[in-house]
Design a protein around this nucleic acid. Structure first.
Lengths: 127, 127
DNA sequence: CATTTATATACGCCTTGACGTATATGTATG
DNA sequence: CATACATATACGTCAAGGCGTATATAAATG
């Protein structure tokens, strides 16, 4: 009951919705997420921490990098999430996020936030 | 996008989830809702006001009474809500709410919050 | 081993919203 | 018309959480 409410609370923020959508199909490292969302890094990390606390994402460390991915949920939550993703898929912001993710090839720090679309050198393991 | 987040925010509270579930199939007056949730009246009214602001419920005045019901939503939100209701249907609290709603017959003030299950006199128009 | 890189956390500030209690508002009723 | 009733709103308080900025931590790298 209040677990359901807690799930909805986790979904009640645009930044978290964007992050969840990006990691829903597999691991993405924080630097990629930063490049896609085009915002400051602590903001990303804080929302990822929130999602992790809420049990929605799993984190895996690999060297310097942290990789996040959607955690498998109980059936009910899974269905709710899927429905949410279906809705989000049509949102312009989400569409451009997905597009940017395709273009990013390496860590944003290599080229700064000013031009997050520039393809990188492929050094980032998450590529 | 942030509209979706706003919807989730409205669903991120147990009391609002209970209220939404109760009014999802038709008009219910505030006194009934108070009897079912067994809490103080301002709390109910405040959450109903929130839901109304969020466009999730409609209100109709009839004499002294206010009747609330779920408002028809755009397709996406409708699906999300349906999924949410499916999940809620299995929650114990929701189950007992539904049970109490069946038993309540008139306005709680007639018998006080101490025994909200006692059938009323049928004077309440919402019966 | 000093420095850069990737990420997380601490801090201070501010807004939102939840709560209980008290009060206002409108409507019926005797 | 005074009173009871149904509902809403105001008030004060409190906790959660959002933000940007600064700093800590840990791993790689030269």
């Amino acid at each position: 009951m209040s677990e359901i409410a807690t799930l909805f609370a986790a979904l009640a923020d645009p930044t978290r919705l964007r992050l969840l959508y990006l990691v829903k199909d597999g691991e993405i490292c924080v630097c990629f997420l930063q490049g896609v969302l085009q915002t400051n890094q602590p903001k990303i990390s804080r929302h990822l921490a929130y999602l992790k606390r809420a049990g929605l994402v799993a984190a895996r460390k690999e060297g310097k990098w942290m990789h996040y991915c959607l955690k498998r949920q109980p059936a009910d939550s899974q269905k709710l999430l899927q429905q949410a993703f279906d809705s989000l898929a049509r949102a312009p912001q989400i569409r451009s996020d997905v597009q940017r993710l395709k273009n990013i090839r390496c860590c944003p720090s290599r080229y700064g936030i000013s031009d997050p679309l520039r393809p990188g050198t492929g050094k980032c393991k998450a590529a």
